[in-house]
């Protein structure tokens, strides 16, 4: 079992390394897929950091300042907690935090992420962030259900909610193959909690940056860093549950996990740049009427397959 003294630095180092990689991925996508007249998110780059130093930080007339500062901190803490769940090496118990109900903890991370984004939009007491926050809760809550069914589908063959057991159950067949609908549906959740592309209802351009419309200086950088951290945590979780995590023929476990997580992060960045965002009401109907039945189907497939 990895003690807290080793788990803590390991998770934070992996998180910061991942965030720098996400910064590079974003810059690459921004260059390759083309630039758009209005572009908003900062990245963990020297320019981003330099932009913050010597900048004045303004609040709005009567914000909930404590909640405004708590939001990025909660968002970043949840990303770190989510990443800590991921087993780094193949040997059983090599996860920084190995708890018996691993995917339930990830569910709690998702639920609290919806709260962090709502708090971020609510606390500045300005209309555009407020509308972004409320719109996001509708989609965040709905897509969370779909991800629950998909994760449970992955837990069936493992016979346990522990992430190391889920990795163990994929020794001969990855969950990506065992339940084909699993990863696509889970990626949609990734787009929602990292505020990217088609499910970015919180910080959308039609609300002038949505919940971050009133952010500036440190708060803006803190929010963007937390967003990048959540992408790292989500990519690692998706790689663990669907792509076998550290399992792989030649390379050592952590290298495989890094490669798979990097791939998932790249796919998310590209989807974020490519797909258009439907109307919020239309997306909510789509999630409940199409995606939820699909996740039921995915669960049924996983169930039948686990019986074999």
């Amino acid at each position: 079992m990895m003690g807290p003294l080793t788990a803590l630095p390991l998770t934070l180092c992996v998180l910061f390394a991942g965030m720098i990689l996400v910064g590079v991925l974003d810059a690459l996508a921004w260059r390759l897929l083309g630039r758009v007249p209005i572009d908003d998110d900062d990245r963990l780059t020297l320019g981003g950091l330099r932009a913050v130093i010597r900048r004045q930080s303004i609040s709005t007339e009567r914000p909930d300042l404590a909640a405004w500062r708590l939001a990025p901190a909660l968002y970043f803490g949840l990303a770190a907690a989510g990443l800590a769940l991921v087993p780094v090496a193949v040997a059983v118990g090599r996860a920084p935090v190995d708890v018996e109900a691993g995917i339930v903890v990830w569910g709690a991370v998702e639920a609290l992420t919806v709260i962090a984004v709502f708090l971020h939009g609510w606390s500045s007491n300005a209309l555009l962030p407020l509308m972004g926050a409320y719109r996001f809760v509708a989609i965040g809550l709905s897509i969370m259900l779909v991800s629950m069914f998909v994760l449970i589908g992955a837990a069936l063959p493992a016979g346990s909610l522990r992430l190391t057991a889920i990795v163990e159950s994929q020794r001969e067949l990855w969950n990506l193959v065992r339940q084909p609908l699993g990863l696509p549906l889970f990626l949609l959740l990734g787009l929602a909690i990292t505020l990217r592309g088609p499910l970015d209802y919180a910080d959308a351009p039609d609300l002038a940056g949505g919940t971050s419309a009133e952010d500036n200086a440190q708060l803006r950088l803190a929010w963007q860093l937390a967003r990048a951290a959540m992408l790292v945590a989500f990519a690692a979780m998706a790689a663990t549950v669907f792509l076998g995590g550290p399992l792989g023929p030649v390379l050592p476990g952590p290298v495989w996990l890094a490669l798979k997580a990097g791939l998932v992060a790249a796919v998310l960045v590209v989807l974020g740049h490519l797909l258009a965002r439907p109307d919020a009401s239309r997306m909510m109907t789509f999630i409940w009427v199409v995606l939820l039945p699909l996740s039921f189907l995915d669960l049924a497939i996983a169930g039948l397959e686990a019986l074999r």
């Binding site: 708890v99 109900a101 903890v105 709690a108 639920a111 919806v114 709260i115 809550l141």
Partner: peptide, 16 residues
């Protein structure tokens, strides 16, 4: 182990 995290998860959604 399960009820603890389930409480946190359920309460987060309900308080939202």
């Amino acid at each position: 182990a399960y009820l603890g995290f389930a409480t946190i998860f359920m309460m987060a959604v309900e308080m939202m």
